[in-house]
Amino acid sequence: MNESNPTVTYGALALASLLLLVHAGLSTAFGLKLARPLLIAAVRMFVQLSLLAVVLQWLFATESALATVLTILIMLGFASWETWRRIGRPLAGRRGVLVPGGAIAAAGLATLGYALLTQVSPQPWYAPRYSVPILGMILGSVMNAVALGIDSLTQNAWRERLNIEAQLAQGVPFTAATRRLVQRAMKTALMPTMNLMAATGLVMMPGMMTGQILTGTSPHEAIKYQMMIILLVAGATALAVFLAVVGTQRDLTDDRQRLRLDRLGAERN
């Protein structure tokens, strides 16, 4: 870390906040009615990040295994809940949260474990300074992908129910009758991660890498870290999408290979 790097003062933050006035002004000028939601979102962002800073400061200082596990569980719980909220036509009942949540947890933890044990190797191995931020970055991408994948599959199953049932009625197995829908769902879910990989460095500078560079890390080191994170995110996303989409496909049928749209919840607006 470069000792001469400038710190961000509260005055600097206040100056940055002034840019929100541009946003609010445009909203008012065009009658978007976004000024109030913008203010609420900005306050939420300040409060949430300030709380996060306090929690992380404490967590990194204690290095408690139990506190790290609890933090990770809370993160996974919120990720599952938030993913469920983003799905336009989720599975009904508890499965609506359990299927995406299970996929996110399995892929997130497996990838985090792999990264900690083989690439980062902190002491102790679960060190919250590494495990919590890495998991956070993995979850940010995985949540979005899983929501996109499940949403694509359930919406298309609903829309194309006549086509699926026409195949089932002709003796086509359920997996074959829904194969194209599954492929489409996986492509839809994985596309943002692929685009991210393709555009990184050319179109945009990733936030984590930029943050490291701003705080004095050499670009060479920051980029290596960023590459590792992107690869972890890509791996976790693929695994989570596969688990979530195939899990949802299984929930859309039964032991007699019927199309069970009655297992879907109501469509959200």
Binding site: L162, I164, A169, Q170, G171, V172, R180, Q257
Partner: peptide
């Protein structure tokens, strides 16, 4: 029916709906 593989059953007892699907 319950002991016959579903795909096999449906090829033997084949339903043609009023509105057909085209996949």
């Amino acid at each position: 029916q319950s002991q016959t593989p579903p795909a096999l059953w449906r090829r033997r007892v084949l339903y043609v709906p009023a509105a057909a699907g085209w996949w």
